[in-house]
Measured scan of single mutants.
Amino acid sequence: NQASVVANQLIPINTALTLVMMRAEVVTPMGIPAVDIPRLVSMQVNRAVPLGTTLMPDMVKGYA
């Protein structure tokens, strides 16, 4: 099973992602693959992402 990107903290809307905000976890359903974490750094979320939420492609501006 491939790990997905999960929020390590509450990420407010329009926040630029940093490594500290994300962790890799095997979850269902799968979200953004953990291998993409370096690519996500400095991209912004388009909604508030609660702690423990799996990041989906439509939550990150410019990802999809």
Rank of each mutant, 00 (worst) to 15 (best):
I37C: 06
D58L: 07
V6D: 00
S42T: 06
A64H: 13
N8I: 07
I32S: 01
P50D: 11
A48I: 12
N8F: 09
E25W: 03
D36Q: 08
A16S: 14
L51N: 10
N14C: 06
G62M: 13
D58V: 10
V5H: 01
G62R: 05
N14Y: 08
N46Y: 11
L19F: 05
T53Y: 09
Q44P: 13
V26E: 15
Q2N: 09
L17Q: 00
L10R: 10
N46K: 13
M56G: 14
E25I: 03
M43Y: 13
P33T: 13
V45Q: 00
R39Y: 14
I32K: 00
Y63P: 04
L51R: 12
D58I: 05
K61H: 13
R39P: 03
L51H: 10
M22F: 07
A16G: 04
V5F: 01
M59A: 12
M43A: 12
P57R: 05
P57M: 07
V35N: 12
L17G: 01
I37K: 04
V41T: 13
V41Q: 08
V20A: 10
I11T: 01
A64P: 13
V26W: 07
V6W: 01
M59H: 09
P38E: 09
M30K: 03
G31K: 00
L10M: 09
V41A: 09
V35P: 06
V35F: 11
A48Y: 10
T28S: 14
I11K: 00
T28K: 03
T28N: 08
T53R: 08
G52L: 05
L19K: 06
L51K: 10
M56T: 11
M30G: 06
V26T: 13
G52S: 13
V6N: 01
A48R: 10
D58H: 05
I11L: 13
A24Y: 11
T54P: 11
L40M: 07
I13Y: 07
V60R: 00
N14I: 02
V6H: 02
Q2Y: 14
P50Y: 12
L55V: 13
A16F: 11
A3P: 12
L17R: 00
M22I: 09
A7Q: 00
A48K: 07
M21V: 04
S42C: 15
P57Y: 12
R23S: 13
E25S: 05
N8W: 04
A64T: 15
V26N: 08
Q2W: 14
